[in-house]
Design a protein around this nucleic acid. Structure first.
Lengths: 339, 339
DNA sequence: CCTGTTATCGCAATCGATTGCAATACGTGG
DNA sequence: CCACGTATTGCAATCGATTGCGATAACAGG
């Protein structure tokens, strides 16, 4: 059905090998300029499209990249995925997208499936702190970590500068007059959650503030778990006037918790989110949050991956940090009793 | 590096062809049961993983499905995509996901790219009414339409029963006492928008109501465009007390418009959305909307595609309609002046 | 004991592109 | 006029799995 190299060769009257070389930018210099144009024309006329399976079989490179994310339904990820898709597709690579639902076992499954598909590399957005898979995987494949850095192995990564982002949140609250600021951290197994928690401690110390007596973390990255955590937090520390959340879902959960305790946000409790995922400007109240450049993170990770694929090992490991930005909306206000 | 059929064959002491047959469930009956088990064991020992490029080259089937959606950032789509992924992956197929940004030219591009990748079929979520590509594409590939049905060609499709869904919305408003109900339609080029608009007219007629004088449609599926449309609508028809929107974004835009006109929702204006995308329970006010089973739509479309792939043409064209459900929240209320 | 099945398995071609190597032609300097 | 370098192209092997066809053996019936 579809035209092959041989068809093009026959039409021009030359050997398929020459056609292959003529059509490949890397080898086109090996072939006479005149024949190159003839080949190009013939290929276009037959609308020849190279068969990636044949090429892949021979070269053992599939021009696909495995993209592993926890869950596409979590609104933070589509932005990053778009960033990846947009820049990968412009170079002939195709992302293969899978979800893990934050389940290590499921992650092992999908990674095995992607290896079976012979992906050329992995972009991983699954941020567990204890991640044994990572080491052995990194020996077999180029890897770029997204939204986190690795503790065990030194690996290329792209993420937001959480230290800076969390500091922005704390400074904002401090500036409003808050002194009793608490943090609701991500799950214990989460690497990004851990990092932001550390960042919070540091920012508080820098302002000579002390965090809430008992640190609180969610058990899963979802609103309901966050609501429970916030309830615990507010019960333990009734004087808390502001909360810095490890992500937007947690902030939403905190606001929900406040509501059930008849504390209104922001009048009685200020809440800051993290990520600025879609629709955060339309929730009630519009969420003050730290915007991380989701699309850029994705795009940059793809670019990093592409460079790994050509530079062939010799590259020094790059860890990119993109700077987030504070978006002030209506979930934060001066604490009660402030003029 | 990786083990091949030949390696397994050598280990068992038989010909690669036999190994191939033994490992393929469709041909395993051609080979002695005892050797099958020996082959299986050897394959496991060498942890042999078949090379999909080699297989694909020979069989010219890639076991990949092109999934074309307008924009992953639109929160309605991730749910459907998950549905597709979840059911495809369980059968060894891999979805290749691309975005069109609702641009026909970009759509042509991505479809060409997917054809180049030799996908086995397409699941299309791009719902233009005038869609010339569709016809020629449907001659070369199995196609499943998602979230729409085709007007020009008869094609397999999976979508919500919009007639029913819109009727639920109208009935709900009617039941609350509304009589002056308007519709804000999707873009003129959109097939799903058109269908819902028709459904609205029908539902109104069935209740012996007349729609707003001048029909209003957005120019794009986004909040800002919807806000403008709603502004126009409310200027033309100040007596309108309720709006049925073609999707949730439009509903959010309508609420925003009401806000700028100092009309509060739901006190002065009731608004109902469509789709029930994530976070619609947390916006201000929580949105009454028609929930379409996003995950199920995706899953069903994948199942349909798989059946097309095996049944090989003989199937009667199936058009699946899933029934939506009204989710009543706080953006709807009885009109002013009702006790 | 012979013939016709049936069950198993091997052979070899094939899918389409890539690439190391060889071959040819053409020029140039000596 | 010759040796040698360069530019261009052809040849053929190769990647790994699949599959039509033929070969062999075992087995049943007559």
């Amino acid at each position: 059905m579809a035209a092959t190299l041989k068809d093009v060769a026959k039409k021009v009257g030359i050997h398929p090998a020459t056609v292959s070389r003529a059509l490949n930018p890397n080898t086109a210099h090996l072939v006479n300029a005149a024949t190159v144009t003839k080949v190009r024309k013939a290929a276009a006329a037959l609308n020849y499209v190279p068969n990636p399976m044949a090429a892949g079989l021979r070269t053992s490179r599939s021009h696909t990249i495995g993209v592993v994310i926890p869950d596409l339904n979590n609104p933070v990820f589509p932005g990053m995925v778009r960033g990846i898709q947009d820049t990968l597709s412009r170079t002939g690579y195709t992302p293969l997208l899978v979800n893990t639902d934050n389940d290590p076992e499921s992650e092992a499954h999908v990674i095995a499936a992607l290896s079976a598909r012979r992906v050329d590399g992995f972009i991983l957005a699954t941020a567990r702190r204890d991640h044994p898979l990572l080491v052995e995987l990194s020996e077999k494949f180029p890897i770029v970590l997204i939204n986190r850095v690795s503790e065990s192995v030194q690996l290329p990564s792209v993420s937001a500068d959480d230290l800076h982002g969390i500091r922005l949140a704390v400074e904002h609250l401090y500036g409003l007059g808050h002194r009793s600021i608490a943090h609701i951290a991500g799950p214990a197994w989460s690497s990004s959650g851990h990092e932001r928690s550390q960042a919070f401690s540091k920012a508080m110390r820098d302002h000579e503030l002390v965090p809430a007596r008992r640190p609180v973390a969610v058990t899963a990255w979802n609103i309901e778990s966050a609501r429970e955590a916030a309830l615990r937090l507010l019960a333990d520390n009734p004087t808390v006037t502001a909360i810095v959340s490890a992500n937007d879902q947690i902030a939403l959960g905190a606001i929900a918790a406040a509501k059930t305790l008849k504390r209104r946000c922001p009048r009685d409790l200020s809440v800051v989110g993290y990520n600025d995922m879609p629709l955060m400007d339309l929730v009630d109240p519009p969420l003050t949050t730290v915007r991380v450049p989701q699309h850029d993170i994705g795009a940059e990770s793809a670019r990093l991956m592409l460079s790994l694929l050509v530079e062939e090992g010799s590259t020094p490991i790059k860890q990119v940090r993109l700077t987030p930005e504070l978006i002030i909306r209506s979930s934060t206000a001066p604490p009660r009793g402030t003029s």
